[in-house]
């Protein structure tokens, strides 16, 4: 039962559709995504790096057969990069062409009317996401990287799915996109932004889910080894480390173990490959000490 661009009929369908798009959601993820489609609200996704925040948006686009429009945030992002920009050089060309064609240069109103039309508008991700005719998933990635003041750029879009362009009028969404914002929580987001979103925290997966993810992403992995890897990762996450291994790191580790043709987690193999899982030397040492 393939979901259509119209959205989902129930929570179970969300889980199923995402699984088909090779993303195994937890119940919490499916429920929140379902709510987002029914309530027409953006989702603010937080959680440690490498747990599949961005991947969720991609999988959702695949599951809905929708176009993924992505806006990567960075310090200094402005409306010209995020929303729209007038195509200045094309406007100039248009004026010059008008002059060459012998149009009355005094007829300024006509020219103005003309050069501030849709033809001269360069749609950036936000505008693009709401003007597509086909279903779309808008991913605003790492929103915590923009300054607090810049967040205001997103507010109109997030609450009303529209964008106001002074010279032009208000553009409303032809079709409301599903909006996913991700944050690494390096700063507090504004109340105004948080209020407009549903909140979803994607933490480390349960053992069962991690095992399923491992088997989905590394098909040649034997089930027994997948279970052991998941158990081992859960154990590491219970230690007091600087950085706990994320799903992407356990996946890397699984591939490493396969490459080394390891059938089991024997101490020697584990000790020599720990640095795939752990990114700090102090953490590696702590884990080694624990494993004797």
């Amino acid at each position: 039962m393939k979901a259509t661009g119209e959205g989902f009929t129930g929570i179970d369908q969300v889980s199923e559709a995402l699984a088909q798009a090779s993303y195994l959601p937890s119940q919490e993820i499916s429920t929140t995504v379902y709510l987002a489609t029914v309530l027409h609200k953006p989702i603010l996704v937080e959680g440690p790096a490498g747990t599949g925040k961005t991947e969720l948006a991609k999988a959702l686009a695949r599951a809905l057969d929708a176009e993924l429009v992505r806006l990567q945030c960075y310090e200094g992002l402005d409306d010209a990069k995020a929303i729209y920009e007038w195509n200045y050089s094309k406007q100039l060309l248009r004026i010059q062409a008008a002059r060459a064609a012998g149009e009355d240069p005094a007829d300024w109103d006509a020219v103005k009317e003309n050069i501030f039309s849709e033809e001269f508008l360069l749609a950036r991700p936000l505008l693009r996401a709401i003007s597509l005719d086909d279903p779309a998933v808008l991913l605003i990635d790492e929103i915590d990287r923009v300054e607090l003041e810049t967040e205001a750029l997103f507010l109109e879009l997030l609450s009303d799915f529209q964008i106001t362009i002074p010279e032009f009028g208000t553009v409303s969404a032809t079709r409301q996109p599903i909006v996913i914002l991700t944050s690494n929580n390096t700063r507090e987001l504004s109340e105004a932004l948080k209020r407009r979103c549903l909140f979803l925290h994607i933490g480390y997966p349960s053992k069962e889910r991690e095992k399923a993810i491992l088997m989905l992403k590394v098909p040649s992995l034997p089930e027994e080894l997948a279970a052991k890897i998941a158990d081992f990762a859960a154990m590491l996450r219970s230690l007091d480390l600087k950085k706990h291994p994320s799903i992407s790191e356990t996946l890397d580790w699984a591939v490493t173990l396969l490459t080394l043709d390891a059938k089991d987690l024997d101490p020697a193999t584990v000790a020599s490959t720990l640095n795939v899982l752990l990114k700090y030397q102090a953490d590696v040492e702590k884990a080694r000490a624990k494993l004797g």
């Binding site: 379902y34 709510l35 959680g47 929580n185 948080k194």
Partner: peptide
């Protein structure tokens, strides 16, 4: 209302997603 009268876990998630904005 959207998730309907179902199990507690879903009910909990529905409230969490809407009322809480900080892990």
């Amino acid at each position: 209302r959207a998730v309907g009268e179902i199990d507690r876990r879903t009910f909990r998630t529905a409230l969490f997603a809407t009322m809480i904005k900080d892990e």
